[in-house]
């Protein structure tokens, strides 16, 4: 109902140019700040590995992590081959 009223009065906030600006700004800043140095990426990789090791045995040499981006989003993509699952005490 409120939505309808907003539409009637031309205040569809979802389409206001401010929201467009917000979204464009969010993406452009993310892309600008994405410039991670190889050193930082290596640290991230080491940290990730330490967390995962508590749960499963992974093939460290084959592990790949990368930041991938397209027009709409940025993703941290990790490809981590699992060798064996650990037996967790809670199970």
């Amino acid at each position: 109902m409120l939505e309808l009223l907003q539409r009637i009065f031309g205040r569809d906030s979802l389409k206001s140019s401010k929201n467009v600006a917000q979204e464009r700004l969010r993406l452009v800043l993310m892309h600008d700040r994405l410039d991670l140095s190889p050193q930082v990426l290596e640290e991230l990789r080491a940290d990730l590995m330490n967390v995962i090791k508590d749960y499963m045995v992974i093939d460290e040499k084959m592990m790949e992590i990368n930041l991938e981006q397209d027009k709409k989003c940025v993703a941290l993509v990790a490809n981590i081959p699992v060798v064996r699952m650990k037996r967790l005490p809670s199970h």
Binding site: S16, A21, Q22, L25
Partner: peptide
């Protein structure tokens, strides 16, 4: 106010 400019908080 009309949603056509980023505000301070944004």
């Amino acid at each position: 106010k009309t949603g056509d400019m980023l505000d301070v908080e944004d």
